[in-house]
Amino acid sequence: MPSKRRALQEINAGSMADIAFLLLVFFLVTTTMDSDWGLARRLPPPLDINQPEPPPIKDRNVFVVLANANDQLLVEGEILEIGQLREKAKEFIANPNDLPDLPEKKPTKVKFFGDYPVSKQVISLQNDNGTSYDLYIQVQNELAAAYSELRNSLATEKFGVTYDYLVEVNDKPKISAIRDIYPQRISEAEPKNVGGQ
């Protein structure tokens, strides 16, 4: 029996930093910080042949946005730049002065608001097969922005907070009231192929 017990040798931790660095570099290289952001949309269900024709919509209730193969916009028969679309759409959706060529309003019972004149607006969007995807997204974005600006100002007027805030705190009854007044109705017509591919 040895009289002296040998002291336990400690593991050398000097290379730990190197190993950790190696792993760190691996994760640094493979990492992608981008998360998925995007415009959420819902496609219309497929057309049913047996379905009866929907009732016609009055011209004044439809906001027609056409985009051609040269990335030009025709809005309600008027050539517009993309920067002007938002204001034009807002004016159409809200119709603040009850103009006869903008959408009609129908008093509807809405929670918190009582009888509120809700406009019967529909936005119709049609693009060509040659339209660039960038323009398409810009149009979608401007229209969505028009709705969200109107919703925000209505919510601020009524509840003192923006619509974005209501969404953040998930205040469902108030959100649905605002949505009832400004429902997002963007309809995409079946595409045309005029300008070629």
Binding site: W37, G38, L39, A40, R41, I137, N141
Partner: peptide
């Protein structure tokens, strides 16, 4: 019937 879509965009 895959109707929920998302157009990926940059912010």
């Amino acid at each position: 019937q895959a109707l929920k879509i998302n157009y990926a965009t940059r912010e």
